[in-house]
């Protein structure tokens, strides 16, 4: 039996627009790297590690920052009680291609570490000191029903008290 659960906040970053709780709060149409930087600057984030991240981690990190900003009281939760379930269509392919370009000359460890899709989860965990359950799934099309089922189970069993998913 599922207990009541609440979506406390939502954020999407898609096609050059940042939307929080259904409201368009920033828009910029340029290439992906410039767009991610413009989002970072627009919200006056200050987190030097951002600059070394790959695009996938930047995107996930920004979405989590905007999602949690003014909406989530971290201090109400133990680090172990907050977790993250994410999915995307093609893993870390963007960074995989960039990494493999460097192999011809000198393989870049800084790019290699981002050739795993779950690194974005690691980045969000480091930023927020979240230490709970997490999983990265690969799905051809985002399967909201599956993610909801996973989150329901994890919250119902008290494995987590709060979960970021997307």
């Amino acid at each position: 039996m599922f207990t009541e659960k609440y979506i406390t906040s939502s954020c999407t970053i898609n096609k050059g627009a940042v939307i929080k709780e259904g409201l368009n709060i920033f828009e910029s149409h340029t290439d992906i790297a410039a767009f991610l930087l413009s989002v970072y600057q627009h919200f006056h984030f200050s987190y030097p590690k951002f600059y070394k991240m790959d695009n996938l981690s930047k995107l996930g990190w920004l979405a989590a920052e905007i999602l949690l900003k003014d909406s989530f009281k971290k201090e109400n939760y133990r680090p172990e009680d907050v977790g993250i379930l994410l999915a995307n269509a093609n893993s870390s392919l963007d960074d995989d291609i960039k990494y493999f370009e460097t192999v011809k000359e000198m393989a870049s460890p800084a790019l290699f570490v981002y050739t795993l899709p779950n690194i974005v989860i690691g980045e969000i965990c480091i930023r927020n000191n979240f230490k709970g359950e997490h999983t990265f799934f690969i799905q051809d099309k985002f399967d909201a029903g599956f993610i909801a089922q996973q989150v329901n189970y994890i919250l119902d069993k008290n494995i987590l008290q709060a979960c970021i998913c997307g």
Binding site: P79, E80, G83, P109, V113, I119, I121, G122, E123, C125, I126, N128, N129, F130, K131, G132, E133, H134, T135, I159
Partner: peptide
């Protein structure tokens, strides 16, 4: 089974092992 995150470093393990212990 259970899962945890170190929330410490993306390419180096926890210094304490507390998170795996959790």
């Amino acid at each position: 089974g259970a899962v945890s995150n170190d929330a410490n470093h993306i390419s180096g393990p926890s210094r304490t092992g507390e998170e795996l212990a959790y």
